[in-house]
């Protein structure tokens, strides 16, 4: 997932490249085969069967694009996509922002840096299920945040996102960011530590302010770190499932449904494999649509430069 900066290859002899390290290549052959059969083969199988009317068992009863027509006319799917969009955009921006801000604060050589780092990274050690349940309780109006604030005297305080269909996604977002920003902070911190001290000295000599140095000099230099962070966050967003199951179960109503949950429910609860496959194929498409331009920019651009 990370993007290693490929060092320019020193070997001049091109023909020998295929057989170079042939022992290592032989050894990795089983893994290559597994990857091809399991990932590529499995993907092809899923896409193929999304054109069938499979119910509980996979069957080659071809129905053309019926599954996709039903998918795109299903309210539940449309709600799922919208939710993922809201969650995705907010989570991407906020996690990057919070992660970078925390990292920058820690980078200012504060005291007890190690302690703070552990505290911020700690949520990442919890599974999404635990995170979801913990935040379900914290956001519970009768026991959690709302009742605590009301006990302090603000009796009109109203904060009940998990039972309000309009803002339930933000309840999930809080939990997701709480869990995910620590890791991004660590990656950012590593990136910041990789910035040469001399840059800071030079900036200081030129009289550039700290914030401006970060925005104009340091962030552009950290591009690979940002790309890594972006890929990690994006993968987390598309996979969003367990947090929803643990925290809201998709409710109230259908207001916090997400695409991955649609796939699971249709495949196993509705016993409609074809429809589940169609939905997972659409998820794959969305990943590919994001990934191809990015890969082109990232890898294609590298060669030119």
């Amino acid at each position: 997932m990370t993007v290693p900066s490929v060092p320019p290859t020193l070997s001049g002899k091109r023909p020998s490249k295929l057989f170079k390290n042939w022992m290592a290549k032989m050894a990795s052959l089983p893994m290559i085969l597994t990857a091809l059969v399991v990932f590529v083969g499995g993907t092809a199988w899923t896409v193929t069967y999304s054109f069938t009317g499979s119910r509980m068992l996979p069957r080659t009863k071809w129905v053309g694009l019926d599954q996709y027509e039903r998918l795109w006319s299903s309210d539940r799917w449309m709600i799922s996509i919208t939710n993922l969009g809201i969650y995705g955009i907010c989570s991407l921006i906020l996690t990057l922002f919070i992660g970078f801000t925390l990292a920058a604060c820690l980078d200012r050589k504060i005291r007890f840096e190690g302690v703070f780092r552990s505290i911020f990274l700690y949520p990442f050690a919890l599974s999404f299920v635990v995170t979801g349940l913990a935040w379900q309780w914290i956001l519970n109006p009768d026991f959690g945040m709302q009742s605590v604030v009301r006990d302090w005297g603000w009796t009109a305080f109203n904060f009940d996102p998990l039972n309000n269909p309009d803002i339930v996604m933000f309840g999930l977002l809080i939990a997701g960011i709480w869990q995910g920003s620590g890791l991004i902070m660590c990656i950012m911190l590593a990136g910041l530590r990789g910035i040469d001290e001399d840059i800071w000295k030079a900036a200081k000599v030129d009289g550039i302010g700290t914030v401006k140095t970060y925005i104009m000099v340091v962030i552009p230099m950290m591009r690979p770190v940002f790309v890594t962070a972006l890929v990690l966050i994006a993968a987390g967003i598309i996979k969003l499932y367990d947090l929803v199951v643990a925290q809201t179960g998709g409710g109230p109503g259908l207001s916090s449904e997400v695409p991955a949950k649609y796939v699971i429910e249709l495949m196993f609860r509705a016993q409609n494999l074809g429809q589940g496959f169609a939905a997972s194929t659409m998820m794959l498409c969305s990943v590919v649509i994001i990934l191809i331009p990015w890969a082109y920019l990232e890898f294609g651009g590298r060669k030119r430069g």
């Binding site: 309210d75 539940r76 109230p252 259908l254 609860r269 509705a270 409609n272 429809q275």
Partner: peptide, 15 residues
């Protein structure tokens, strides 16, 4: 499959 569709509709309707 049909049961889940009806349940989804009810979930939407009630909330």
């Amino acid at each position: 499959d049909t049961t889940l569709q009806i349940e989804d509709l009810q979930a939407q309707f009630w909330s």
